[in-house]
Amino acid sequence: MSRPLARVTAAALACASLAALAQVPEFRVGVEAAYVDVFVSRGDAPVVGLGSDDFELRDEGVPQPVAVVASDVLPIQALFVFDSSSSLTNEKRAALRRAGEILLAALRPADEAGLLAFSAEIFWLAKPTRDRDAVRRALARMEPIGATSVYDALLAALAVADPRGRTLIILFTDGRDNTSALDASHLKAVAERTSALVHLVTVRDALPQPGRPIRAPLDRTALDDIAEATGGRVWVANSVATLGGAFERIAATLAARYVLRYEPRGEPKPGWHRLEVKLRKGRAQVHARRGYWAPEH
């Protein structure tokens, strides 16, 4: 059952472990229900209070009837993927701890959070848990060491994302990559095949700068592609001092997200399905996955 993660089918839920079912006991749907996470904004301000009639969703160009469902029936698994390479100064470390607090505060009780740290090595500091204090303790344990495997860390987060639910990946890096086996070009196709929503946060210094580099520059265009393909985005803070603002805006998107449910008409063909989500009336930016992959039957 490798249905693309943008789609959560009843079959997937049936296959889920009892423990996972216990997390969402009230969730029951038809065989081919699909769910799409959507965030709507005007400028930087989230647009709230929208209903089912406000949205238009097309799957491969075919309009689909949608229903807005309460987002808390599908808990979030939030994976904080934080750069702990040697460039992590005390100031950045403090900023990341504050960022973690901001994000934890935005989660609902049923949501899980985990902390995956990376330098050259990628390692769990806290596996996904509802225990917020465990994550806080893990944030406090972040120590700067070694080089930077940004792309391999993002791949790892996509791979461990919960395929049955809504995984939110928030990756922070303050620098460039120098030890990954993968590069940005490898990741977009992977991100499209998962249901994870990816937000990438960086500071301006990490983007291409004149002078002699020692680490591979982050490919901003490719990162935008990866994040936007999943319905997320890249947030660039001007400095460490303004990093908290980026995380506050991500937290705001969490609180104001819509989960659209629809039952695709007809037999879904295998391969890439282009999704378009927009508002029927009014002007606003709608952030949602650009599509999903349907497996061979």
């Binding site: 990628i122 790892a156 791979a159 993968l182 196709a189 992977v190 095949r193 998962t194």
Partner: peptide
């Protein structure tokens, strides 16, 4: 981990 990342990429695709 480099080989694991590369392998996971192929498997996910």
């Amino acid at each position: 981990q480099a080989a694991a990342a590369a392998l996971a990429q192929v498997l996910l695709l």
